[in-house]
Amino acid sequence: MTSNASGRRNLTFISRRSPYGSGYAKACLDMVLSAAVFDQNVTLVFMDEGVLQLLPNQQAGNIHAKDLSAALAALPLYDVDKVYAEQDSLTRRGLLPDQLAIEVMLCHADKIAEIIRQSDVVFTL
């Protein structure tokens, strides 16, 4: 497979881990932002424990960490506007869509499967 004429590819990032307990959530975001800076067509999907990154009121400074949800709020500045959260993952964890730290598009597994099929590269972290 090759890039299209503009050198843009569909890069999808599936973020599955909760913040702070491991560095994977931040690592995933770093990859998302890099891809965006390089003008790629980026899609970000939060599923499983990854939806916990969307909890508001994170006092990360208390554990000498940088607030990941605040970093997520910068996604629109990088033109990353395809941001999804799996509804089932939210529901299982008692998260309500209107109480999340950032705006996301809710989706089900079918949509994630479709996103994967339309991607050139998928990174799952």
Binding site: G7, R9, L11, D30, M31, A35, F123, T124
Partner: peptide, 16 residues
């Protein structure tokens, strides 16, 4: 990380 993005553009498959 730009090198990872670059590699993703040049590759047929990316394995993690």
């Amino acid at each position: 990380l730009g090198q990872l993005v670059d590699a993703s553009l040049k590759s047929d498959r990316v394995l993690s």
